[in-house]
Design a protein around this nucleic acid. Sequence first.
DNA 1: CATTAACGATTACCAAAGGTAACTATTAAG
DNA 2: CTTAATAGTTACCTTTGGTAATCGTTAATG
Lengths: 143, 143
Amino acid sequence: MQGFFRSYFLLHRILISKLNDLLSAHGLIYSQWMVMYYVKNQGPSTLVDISNYYNVRKPVITRTVQSLEEAGFVCQIPSRDRREKIIQLTASGEAVYGECRQLIDALEREVTRGLSDEEKDVTLRSVIKIRENIINIGGNKHA
Amino acid sequence: MQGFFRSYFLLHRILISKLNDLLSAHGLIYSQWMVMYYVKNQGPSTLVDISNYYNVRKPVITRTVQSLEEAGFVCQIPSRDRREKIIQLTASGEAVYGECRQLIDALEREVTRGLSDEEKDVTLRSVIKIRENIINIGGNKHA
DNA sequence: CATTAACGATTACCAAAGGTAACTATTAAG
DNA sequence: CTTAATAGTTACCTTTGGTAATCGTTAATG
């Protein structure tokens, strides 16, 4: 696996650039998409839920959620615990999520063209495995 | 390959965080390592060489190279074309490169633990192939 | 050969995505 | 009832990317 990191990071920039091109056409940026993705698939969530899932500090999520509220893509629903801020997608959030979901799925098929199902499967499982390994190494500041 | 992007980006944050932990112990950050890596492996290079390789704008490279010069890890060598700035690693740059190289190789082995050689190979080739696909899709603003 | 093009590098900005520290409310524990 | 812990926010910093405009220098062209 000589040079895996290099190839990985070389891919990252160009991949996130493509993704942002796609999202910006719908008024979104990557960090907003991440939050919408989580809320769509996990249901109404607190900021701490999202923060834990992505291993990102709370203020970062606060900022992103605020921008999504201003854009009208998420809204707050009441909670028994009045400290919590539970958010969910609005109708317009659902709509833009659906549009982007399709485009992203299409992009994913496009960029993996030429790879067999077997190769795709191995690659996906390897990426997940590598992440697990890093988490288990420990010493990561955000466990 | 449903969810490849998600897994890929989930890995990225944690991977670059590990890498920066490692580099910061030697006074480097990721962007500096990238430049040193290129200069080490391609030999003395201009800023445009580096910019083209990483598909990153020139001012970004200017800034990184300046920080490396201040740190004493790279220096300029004269060129016939007086527009160009050709840089190479200094002795201290070579030393720190060597130290980090070993640690990064070790980290790479560690995080890919549990993957067979076959799986590692397929994964590396897939990542490279995906990058090629994206570049060939065209429309990338930085071709 | 003189003028114009192109090129390499830089400066001065801006944006996105991450981080810390310190704070306010609110709830849970003792 | 007082103290802890928790959820969220605010203010600010860092890293890594981008643009636009500019300066020197080289290459092209009339």
